[in-house]
Design a binder for these strands. Structure first.
Length: 153
DNA sequence: CAATAGATCATCT
DNA sequence: GATGATCTATTGC
């Protein structure tokens, strides 16, 4: 995931202030911010600051642990399981997340399946964010060092 | 392998 | 009217 902050973070949509698109970023935490990028991909963010303060986490990749068949159906071009959700645009296709999920509360579902954390495999590493042209060196990308599902290793 | 081109459109100026 | 928090295919070494 990558953190995107507020006014001081020129790589963040919220740095342009409150607009039609960025409204969810200024809302309460635990809600989705889904936007269209490059006219063809959707990106999922989770609002992560108190109401009134912009800030979110861009979900750049995830490890599929359930629903793999459905995800492969949604994204049949993925050759390997590790590529299925390795990328912000890829995982939204696999999970069929679109702007219709924008502003949705994501705190009221039930987490049915997860993989136990493995301290060897799940060591958290930090790096600059990918694909940004502002605040290029800010260490706001967090990923599992040895996880093959990470985007752009 | 790395670098680049092109697809495509909502949002903001 | 310009610009992307991207991805895939293609080119070239």
């Amino acid at each position: 995931m990558e953190a995107y902050l507020g006014l001081e973070d020129l790589a963040a949509h919220a740095s342009r202030g409150l607009t039609g698109r960025t409204k969810p970023l200024f809302g309460p935490p635990g809600h989705a911010y889904v936007y269209l990028i490059y006219g063809m991909y959707e990106c999922l963010n989770l609002v992560a600051e108190p109401d009134g303060i912009p800030g979110c986490a861009l979900i750049r990749a995830l490890e599929p642990v359930t629903g793999v068949e459905a995800m492969r159906h949604s994204r049949p071009t993925a050759r390997r399981l590790e590529d299925l959700c390795a990328g912000p645009g890829r995982l939204t296709i696999a999970m069929e997340i679109t702007r219709r999920h924008n502003e949705m509360d994501v705190t009221h579902g039930e987490l049915t399946v997860r993989r136990p954390l493995d301290d060897g495999r799940d060591e958290i590493a930090v790096s600059p964010r990918i694909g940004v042209n502002q605040c290029v060196d800010w260490p706001l990308r967090f990923y599992f060092r040895n996880n093959p599902n990470v985007s752009r290793r």
